[in-house]
Design a protein around this nucleic acid. Sequence first.
DNA 1: CCTAGTTATTTCTGTCGTAGAAATAACTCA
DNA 2: TGAGTTATTTCTACGACAGAAATAACTAGG
Lengths: 384, 384
Amino acid sequence: MTDTVADAEVSTSARELAREVLIHGPISRAELGRRLGLSPASLTRLSKPFLEQGLFVEAAEPVQGAMGRPAKPLDVQVDARRIIGVKLTGDDATGVLTDLRATALAAAERPIDDHDPAAVVDVIADLIDELAAESDRGVAGVGISIGGNVADQRVVLRAPFLGWRGVPLAELVEERVGVPVDIENDVTALTTAEQWFGAARGHDAFAVVTVGAGVGYGLVMHDRVVTTPDTGMGLGGHLPLDPGGPLCIDGHRGCSTAMLSIPSICSQVGVALGREVAYDEVLELSALGHPVARSVTDAAGRALGRMLAFIANLAMVDTVVLSGEGIALWNVAGDVARAALAADRDPEATPVEIHIDDAGFVSWARGAAAVAIQAALGRLRLPQ
Amino acid sequence: MTDTVADAEVSTSARELAREVLIHGPISRAELGRRLGLSPASLTRLSKPFLEQGLFVEAAEPVQGAMGRPAKPLDVQVDARRIIGVKLTGDDATGVLTDLRATALAAAERPIDDHDPAAVVDVIADLIDELAAESDRGVAGVGISIGGNVADQRVVLRAPFLGWRGVPLAELVEERVGVPVDIENDVTALTTAEQWFGAARGHDAFAVVTVGAGVGYGLVMHDRVVTTPDTGMGLGGHLPLDPGGPLCIDGHRGCSTAMLSIPSICSQVGVALGREVAYDEVLELSALGHPVARSVTDAAGRALGRMLAFIANLAMVDTVVLSGEGIALWNVAGDVARAALAADRDPEATPVEIHIDDAGFVSWARGAAAVAIQAALGRLRLPQ
DNA sequence: CCTAGTTATTTCTGTCGTAGAAATAACTCA
DNA sequence: TGAGTTATTTCTACGACAGAAATAACTAGG
């Protein structure tokens, strides 16, 4: 972003306008005025600098069919900036180059062999350089998401998979790449992406459940992602769901991780078959009706359905997004899960809307990009 | 409230100021400025009309010990208005006359024999008249809380205990008492009271669990009580907590109602002893170590602890208020509940803060009063 | 006892964002 | 073709707010 000296902080209204257009665009000024509680005059005034900067465009296609003067809907010029999102695990760093709606334009990956912060920063910087080379218009911001605790979008307080405590990752990476960097917990980042750009876009309250190496849980309420000091501790990963289920590594019988995580499902089937089995194979066997695989995925489905019911009843949401690299489980266990959900929820209650985000690792990296997009919005400067 | 023709709508800031003083007063203008993000000048301006109207007072006791000019904290004149709160069940109407902080000054009760809306309105009007006679300064508003679905704080959509559907209760009672009336779901109302005037006062996120004839669940997040179309359906009342527990009336084994409600606990002990047992006697027997009572209350405690863990992990709160007419259960089962909670929650996570509100039926009626106080705030007019 | 330092509150003034009204634009429908 | 409808723009006035400076009411230390 090339800021002029004369550029000024944008007002709250301008930021809300940008957010609304980013999430709901293309959208007319009139509709924006109604949503934001502003007069038409204000919308003209507020949107002008965005149009002048090339951050907004007026959609070519006016709305047809209605009476009166047709609206000229505003939309973000998604190609105005490029963003990079990086998802960091103990094993590798996955990155995507995206536009302003976190749509992936390029992807890359690097293994992480050494958990030393300096070594990891090297890998991340390399990954970012590779992705930035794919962009012909520079990079406006970088987001990094990580399993663990993050303070202020700057410092990794605790990252069990990397054995980190108090690593000022944003600073370290910024020094290397010369672009603003923001760090966020991985589930929070993914939840943010679902809220702004995913299937739950525009819902004012919903939950996110991720199934993968572990089980993650995120919550949006009153249009805001809920974060607490415990965010990143994985508290949604050890809910007791099945008193007859297997044990997780922490000794919880039938908890969400024991019932749903990829490693646990693979090892349950593996033990019964007496050989190592990959996750994809489990799902395949289950689809073919193999009794062992079927039994394990059915139990997983029941547990997932029960978890969804608990979420709907206690977090008071009626929409849930399922994501993560292991959510293909839904293909073979979705029906069982829906039945279990129905059994634990009042039949007169609002049905729970379930969205599947099956983009796997790309979703995690998109989440990181969404964090960078939000941060860029916060840094926005416009000519007065 | 005697409005002059010249009185004007109060601004958002003025309403937020009133709310903040109501919840946190006495509190200095300087501190209010910091909390609301306003300059000291604005606080002088905003608080002046409240002081002129006699709604605020400057606390007599300035803050001691600190350096600099001592603050003259603002507080609400709690006696400036009187409010009536009524809790309606299928059997009776309980009412309280309160001040502006929902502190009960008088209480009264009426049995409800006839569920016909007209008959119930008669009883409520009588009850209100009796309580209003106790006030020497009129009544500024009436709140009525009810188990069931309420639309817009005006119309009872569904109230199973009364067999009502679509009763415009606010209108009917207003016609009789000539004072603004607002209706709210009972758990929502109680949650509101806890948020503004209870032990969780000022917490930005917490949950409420009520134990009584049933089990209720309310949630505050981002400083707002969470309500959904399903509010009033009692979805928190049928969470599966103990696979070996008794059945509730809907056939859920070991659900929150089956494990925790007064009728279920009494009947479990009653069946074992071969006679009818009152709730208080169950708690007494349990305290004395009676094996049957002990066993039932221990199971209840474990279920409650598990429920608290689910709430903390899924609603993402670290504070829970326990209320309702049956919460004396905590006296005999609190330790068991705490142990169960600890078992289901990561030991490194923030400990869950538990507050007990043992005011029983008065709390329910206070909740209704809190709704009326909020509504009065919304209707507030001040001389410009 | 006096003075410097500190914090709270008030007064005054300029600014910025907003709504309101009226004008203009661009359509549909009869 | 004109009446009706809706969207957007332009212009103006108002009002809420912050900032600065003044005033107030204390504490702490010499």
